[in-house]
Simulated scan of single mutants.
Amino acid sequence: MGQTAAVSAFLWITVVSLAAWCWLLLGQGFFWRTDVRLPRRREPEVWPSVCVVVPARDEAAVLPDSLPSLLAQEYPGRAEVFLVDDGSTDGTARTARELSQRHGGLPLTVGSPGEPPAGWTGKLWAVRYGIGLARAREPEFLLLTDADIAHAPDSLRELVAAALSGGFDVVSQMARLRVESVWERLVVPAFVYFFAQLYPFRWIGRRGGRTAAAAGGCVLLRADTAAEAGIPDAIRHAVIDDVALARAVKRAGGRVWLGLADRVDSVRPYPRLPDLWRMVSRSAYAQLRHSPLLLLGTVAGLVLVYLVPPVAVAAGVVAGGAATAAAGALAWAVMAGTYVPMLRYYRQPLWLAPLLPFTALLYLLMTVDSAVRHHRGRGAAWKGRTYARPDAVPDEG
């Protein structure tokens, strides 16, 4: 009797998981589709001026693969690049100057703001300094891009044309991340898939929509909007600064567009699982607002949505529960089917789609590890800095 009740309960749990996947398939902004690319655009008669701000901390190894692509931008208007050395110890500033001398192209200014004061993340303190340098040029747009991002020659031109044509205050592209090692193949496409599930791109770009997000590697921002939204001062302690930036812009009445990139690529390698683990775990708990209740809800949700289907198939086959196995298999099939477009976008083999539950388990463990690190006082750590939760930081405002 007890065993029958347990089997029946698990069947209902599996049915709930299947229902969740039906909702995700149709009701979550079609997040799984990868056709949200730069919107239709027309070129203006007069091109606005743009300043490119690149915060960089210990990036000498990747700059040769990224900075020349910015200097080589084929932009019809006035544009220049400001690289802000955020306390590097590997000769980042020297490397940037050498690359500028060797490649030429857009004018490059290299500066350093010193160590960030309490309440600021290093990246946003560097962005603040870079925007301050850029203001002397009175640009109409700012391009905030990371030091590990390589741009196609027409990237800046296309971003500006999209912003002007669509009336957007922010146009952001999620750079195509590097996918070469075994672990990158397993983890990286899923990272973008999960992000799109949390922040459906179609919802971000629609008028009046409350969903807000951007991809920090490539953010074109109107300079006037940045001033009105108080960027970056208003988000100075944000670890997930791209999402915080988009929210600040929307609160100020601005419009945001986010989509996948075709010719904007990350050159940073994450060859080993520990490299990817650090990338995810450093901000996962911050994404949950450092809330134990949200952590529990996230873990439960990941188990229900991603882990129950394969377990139901295995349990149904072993125990002879045809209904449980069928419901689990159908949920698993929908899950894998929604993952296929992202695998195609990353040019990966489709046999990776059924392995998504394993990858989701990895992300679950990374999220838990992020919370454990926070409660042990190691918080969001990156390149020698550890950031406390916002409400633990003194406000200097």
Rank of each mutant, 00 (worst) to 15 (best):
Y75P: 00
P48F: 04
A72V: 07
R78C: 03
V52R: 01
A72L: 08
G77V: 10
P44E: 09
R42Q: 13
E45A: 14
W47C: 08
P68T: 08
V46F: 03
E59D: 12
V81E: 08
C51D: 12
A61C: 00
L70R: 08
P68Y: 08
P44S: 09
E74G: 09
V62F: 09
D58I: 01
A79W: 00
V81M: 12
P55G: 08
W47T: 09
A72W: 00
V53C: 06
V52I: 15
R57A: 09
L63Q: 03
V50C: 07
W47M: 11
V62T: 15
E80P: 01
R41N: 04
V50G: 03
G77Q: 07
V81I: 14
Q73P: 01
V52M: 11
L63H: 06
A60L: 01
A72G: 13
E59C: 00
S49N: 06
P76W: 06
L63W: 10
P55W: 09
D65H: 14
R40V: 04
R57E: 04
L71A: 06
V50N: 02
L71S: 05
Q73H: 09
W47N: 05
V81C: 10
V62I: 15
D65C: 01
E45P: 10
R40H: 11
E45H: 12
P76Q: 12
E45D: 15
R40T: 04
L63M: 09
R57N: 05
R57Q: 14
V62Q: 14
E43G: 01
P39K: 10
L63K: 11
S49R: 15
G77T: 09
P68A: 06
V46M: 07
S69L: 07
A56K: 10
G77A: 13
V52K: 03
Q73K: 07
L67K: 06
L67I: 12
V46G: 11
V53S: 05
V50P: 07
E74R: 15
P39W: 09
W47P: 05
A56N: 10
V50D: 00
E74Y: 00
